[in-house]
């Protein structure tokens, strides 16, 4: 025997139907595929792509940021990955997978710190409160360089070897995209673009004027 719906259940179903018709920001999930190249059109790895709502645009921030924490390993006297991006207030864990000590440090005004890491050691999370680029070095091995980019933008990601970055689960609206790279010319500002998300998929192509890769000069004496 079929049950007759109660009045309260009917009201609930009608409410769901109305909300579905109106469409809420949470229901819209767009994906932005960013492609970052240099002046010559070559893919630019390790660029930081950030998306923030245009000023004055109300928009829910992601409930749980994907960029609250990051890990930088040290292997074969190289920081891996060379660039990470985290939210302001986020943390970075440093791990030493080498068989020798490293002395991780930063003298960047945004975040100054130093720590000696024994072989195999993993650090306590290092907190970065202020936005900006933080160059990380090793005081023992000068050729080791990494960057932690700290941002207030709700969405951010680092490009892969093909210069590509995919930002999923974005709400609809007007955004400002900002792109930073460690080899931007001195005192040049990160490049910004406006982007409107109205469809499920959007693309962002940005060409950056960057300096040539820096070759290490001399050996660590």
């Amino acid at each position: 025997m079929n049950r007759i719906p109660t009045p309260s259940l009917i009201a609930y179903l009608i409410g769901v139907a109305i909300l579905s018709c109106l469409g809420t920001p949470a229901a819209f999930a767009a994906t932005v595929t960013a492609t970052i190249t240099d002046d010559a059109g070559r893919p630019l790895a390790d660029a930081v792509v950030m998306l923030a709502p245009e000023p004055g645009t109300p928009m829910p921030a992601p409930e749980r940021s994907r960029i609250a924490t990051a890990t930088i390993d040290q292997t074969d006297e190289v920081f891996v990955p060379p660039v990470v991006v985290i939210r302001s207030g986020g943390t970075v864990v440093f791990r030493n997978s080498d068989g020798i000590r490293h002395h991780v440090y930063s003298f960047a005004p945004v975040r100054r710190f130093e720590m000696v890491q024994a072989p195999g050691e993993t650090s306590e999370p290092v907190r970065f409160d202020k936005p900006g680029a933080v160059a990380i070095g090793c005081n023992i091995h000068d050729h080791m360089i990494a960057h932690v980019f700290v941002t207030d933008a709700p969405w951010a990601i680092v490009t892969d070897a093909q210069g590509r970055a995919i930002l999923p689960e974005l709400p609809a609206g007007q955004f400002v995209a900002t792109v930073w790279h460690a080899r931007l010319r001195p005192r040049s500002e990160p490049v910004t673009r406006q982007i409107a998300l109205t469809a499920a998929n959007a693309s962002l192509a940005v060409s950056l004027s960057v300096l040539p890769p820096r070759r290490p000069r001399g050996h660590d004496y």
Binding site: H103, S106, F107, R112, F113, E114, N139, Y221
Partner: peptide
């Protein structure tokens, strides 16, 4: 053959 002493510095000077 040499010995180098270089303390870490988190200021602009080293």
């Amino acid at each position: 053959a040499y010995v180098r002493y270089r303390p870490v510095s988190t200021s602009n000077w080293r």
